[in-house]
């Protein structure tokens, strides 16, 4: 559903989490207090965490770790030439580790965030188009092309790709129903319509 919607990209604002914060909290919802008021640090994935689910302490601990992991490749623990199968394998392994369903209960919040990062890395690198863009940015020294960046450009491309694909499938379906004229393979509805069309011609 993109219609000229662009999350901000801009070179200076690459970030993973909305880094604004302090936040108030209304509406019910799981515990967690929100005292986080953290500034995004240029050039790190640092997270000014703004959800009750991610607490300050985790954020602080996390930051060092995450910042150390520069690229998606490093995050997944694969080489920059890694194949699709390697990416997939690495992703599944990390999902097993970080998915909140399997993570240690006391570290769910931290692991949830980690999982989302891994997911982001996997989604980017497993798609040849996105991976190429990411590699390009990486070569330029923009380590952190993140969710905000991709949403417009890439998804638009992706969507038009889907559309072509979708049209191919429709065309294929039409072709099939045309070729299989014998009536046997035609859907009943199609047969009836054809019969009707034929009889009305007569």
């Amino acid at each position: 559903m993109s219609f000229g919607v662009v999350p901000r990209s801009g070179n200076q604002t690459l970030h993973l989490w909305p880094n604004h914060v302090p936040a108030t909290k209304i509406g019910g919802g799981g515990g967690g207090s929100w005292r986080v008021a953290q500034r995004r640090r240029e050039g790190s994935w640092s997270a000014g965490l703004s959800s009750s689910s991610f607490r300050t302490r985790a954020a602080v601990e996390e930051r060092g770790f995450v910042a150390a992991k520069g690229s998606f490749y490093e995050l997944l623990g694969i080489s920059e030439g890694g194949s699709y199968d390697e990416i997939k394998k690495a992703y599944k392994q990390l999902a097993r580790k970080y998915h909140p369903d399997v993570s240690p209960p006391d570290r769910t919040e931290e692991y949830t965030r980690r999982f989302i990062e891994v997911q982001e890395a996997y989604e980017t690198l497993s798609d040849p188009g996105r991976r190429a863009l990411y590699d390009r940015d990486l070569a330029r020294g923009l380590h952190l092309a993140f969710s905000t960046r991709k949403r417009f450009d890439e998804e638009l491309e992706e969507r038009s790709g889907w559309r072509n694909h979708w049209q191919d499938q429709i065309a294929e379906l039409k072709r099939r129903s045309m070729n299989k004229d014998a009536g046997e393979n035609l859907s009943w509805g199609a047969r009836m319509r054809r019969q009707r069309a034929e009889s009305s011609v007569e």
Binding site: G10, Q12, T13, H15, P18, N19, H20, V21, P22, A23, T24, K25, I26, G27, G28, G29, G30, W34, R39, R40, G48, S50, S51, S52, S53, H99, P100, D101, T108, T112
Partner: peptide
């Protein structure tokens, strides 16, 4: 989150930065 709870957070940020102008609002 992992238990499929949806939270929406919104607030004003200073243009060009990611700094919140005032506290954000979180709604489940």
């Amino acid at each position: 989150d992992a238990s499929d709870v949806l939270r929406v957070l919104a607030g004003v940020v200073l243009p060009g930065t990611q700094n919140a102008v005032s506290p954000f609002i979180e709604v489940r």
